[in-house]
Nucleic acid binder design. Structure first.
Lengths: 183, 183
DNA sequence: CATGTAGTTCAAAAAAACTTGAACACTGTC
DNA sequence: GACAGTGTTCAAGTTTTTTTGAACTACATG
């Protein structure tokens, strides 16, 4: 393997540019990421991998999207943490390569696990904190009101905790639903 | 019982200060709002109203939370739009007064209606746009790949569309939900 | 152990989101 | 019409989040 050219452009190399439809998909994911509270660049990265059959290295992601090394590194790490992408090592290659997870159930599950569950957990602490503050309330009416509110919040917390497993279960189940192929 | 001079004239006025537990609740909602992608001030406003039995006017919200007129005005409007608060007019008073909606089902339903549904709707347009871009692709392989991706995205869209009604239905009914025996 | 490749970290820059407040609009009263 | 009470708008200011890129770690190879 001759390593002469630095800016090597081996003709066996796959495309280093994006199709227009790929740009469209990447933009779709950019917006989607944004609207669920993830950085745009995460959406771009996922979108790019989603478009491709072949795994991509960090280098290729950087070149194709024109983002910085830092963004790529952090984005790829977080996306893997979310279970939205996974990495593979081609034998005899030091580079880590990435592919998108395309099972919606996995995506939703990972998102809920990493984003929703922690919030619910923190909620327990917050509720306890409020309970503690309530113990120090002198005024009878205020105390009563506070207790009622605490009860409501506890109920909500319980309901949300029960909802999440259902969501995880429902999404992806429809693979098996009989479908009339339309559209 | 009456607070010291605080530019307030009428001593029959209810508290113009917040109990500690109320601050805790308001902070909880501030964080909750933040984590579902709403401005912090919306959370504060909702949290304040959530704590109170009596309706509050915009003026009172501004004074109690120490936020600006602009924030209060926009926050109250958006929260009402979301169905998270509702307004009432006391007879013989020109001021609009607000109370929090505390039924979780309503809150979740409103949130999904105002936030999730619009995104799904926009998604239709985006998918069509991608479809249009695909029509212009020459390369056979790229086209095929693109079509496959479009199909996947369409499937996801369908599944999410089906999920939302379930969520709306399940929340608020969880007393009667069948349970997965573990936890 | 010097070199080159792969990847991470983090302070500073840039961008996005949020808040503010003064000007404006609307309405009912005198 | 002038005024006072309510509420909205939005340009400018502030805060928060995201991105960048240079310095750094790690590790294989000659």
């Amino acid at each position: 393997m001759p390593a002469l050219t630095l800016t090597s452009k081996d003709s066996s190399k796959q495309v280093l540019i994006l199709d227009e439809w790929e740009l469209g998909v990447i933009d779709l994911f950019l917006n989607a990421a944004n609207s669920i509270g993830l950085p745009r660049s995460y959406g771009q990265i996922y979108g790019l991998l989603f478009c491709r059959d072949q795994s991509l290295s960090m280098d290729e992601v950087i070149k194709l999207l024109g983002i910085s090394k830092g963004s790529a590194s952090q984005g790829l790490r977080s996306l893997r943490q979310l279970g939205a992408i996974s990495s593979v090592f081609e034998p005899g290659d030091r580079k880590e390569r990435f592919v998108a997870e395309i099972r919606l159930r996995k995506l939703v599950g990972g998102f809920l696990r990493e984003q929703a569950d922690p919030h619910l957990d923190k909620g327990v602490g917050r509720l306890q904190q409020i309970e503690a503050l309530l113990a120090k309330v002198d005024d009878k009416d205020s105390h009563k009101r506070g207790v009622r509110r605490h009860e409501i919040l506890s109920g909500w917390h319980r309901q949300m905790s029960r909802l999440l497993p259902w969501v995880k279960m429902i999404v992806g189940k429809s693979d098996r639903l009989p479908q009339k192929s339309s559209d």
